[in-house]
């Protein structure tokens, strides 16, 4: 008997932990962390923008790894493929959030919502690539062939991530260089700002895990439902055949 729910004790614990951590992030971001000496209050957007971008990277890397495993396994099951798809869906969501919050932050600090500079352009390109990946995943066909073509696409798409992250170092960009994951290894953040940012990353990671578990279970149920549909079709044809044979006698 297959459970109709995608929730388990584990997902409930993860969900509650995510709510608790994100509640702390909201309180800290708005009421505890200081305003920035240069950007003032607008710096508070960072606590959503940076974790969203990092978790989008994490999601796309997860898609790449699980796609690689899915391709490499001799006896292909669809489990890793489903995780790859679920992770890409959540990644697109977080990357969209990073683009929106980044745009708002840009308006407040740079004075513009958008510019075709290296970081912004490569980020948008990454976002569009994964929207395309999800579209390709949803084209009907044999699930194993779908898994194979999606995995190849995912392995190519994941190569864009270093280009996005290091775009501010490789080219001159309006976007500032990284304050935490920079090549010097220096952390250029006030302690409380850094702690709140780290909390945001933990909270968003929990949301990511929670969503991916639910989405991949949903994909499993959908595949099972299609299997049930196939069984029903076979039974219906058998009945039709039996009726024709019976009528002919």
């Amino acid at each position: 008997m297959v459970s109709r729910s995608t929730g388990t004790t584990t997902t409930r614990v993860i969900g509650i932990a995510a709510i608790a951590v994100l509640a702390w992030v909201v309180v800290s971001a708005f009421f505890i962390t200081p305003a920035d000496f240069q950007q003032g209050e607008s710096v508070r957007i960072m606590y959503a923008h940076v974790p969203a971008a990092w978790i989008a990277y994490l999601a796309f890397i997860t898609t790449g790894i699980t796609s690689g495993i899915s391709l490499a396994r001799r006896h292909r099951t669809l489990g890793f493929d489903r995780v790859a798809g679920a992770s890409a869906e959540v990644g697109v969501l977080f990357m969209g959030l990073a683009l929106i919050t980044g745009s708002l932050w840009g308006r407040l600090t740079w004075g513009t919502f958008w510019q075709w500079d290296p970081r912004l352009t490569t980020t948008l390109f990454l976002f569009v690539t994964y929207v395309g990946y999800l579209a390709v995943r949803n084209i009907d066909g044999d699930p194993h062939r779908r898994a194979k073509r999606s995995a190849i696409l995912a392995l190519l798409a994941v190569l864009e991530i270093p280009l996005v992250h290091f775009s501010v170092v490789l080219w001159r960009s309006l976007h500032q260089e990284a304050s935490v994951l920079n090549p010097d290894g220096d952390v250029r953040l006030d302690d409380m700002m850094l702690f709140t940012l780290f909390s945001g990353v933990v909270g968003f990671t929990l949301v990511f895990v929670w969503m991916v578990i639910h989405r991949q279970r949903l994909a499993t149920l959908r595949d099972l439902q299609q299997g049930v549909g196939l069984d029903a079709a076979i039974a219906a044809r058998r009945n039709e055949g039996a009726a024709i044979a019976g009528g002919g006698q």
Binding site: P34, A35, D36, F37, Q38, Q39, G40, V43, M46, T109, W110, G111, T112, Q115, L174, Q176, E177, A178, S179, N182, R188, L189, D190, M192, M193
Partner: peptide, 19 residues
Amino acid sequence: TRIEVKHSNEYEAENAERI
């Protein structure tokens, strides 16, 4: 026709001394 501000990657608490 357009001016954009390119701020640094340093984030510090706002206070008169720091400014």
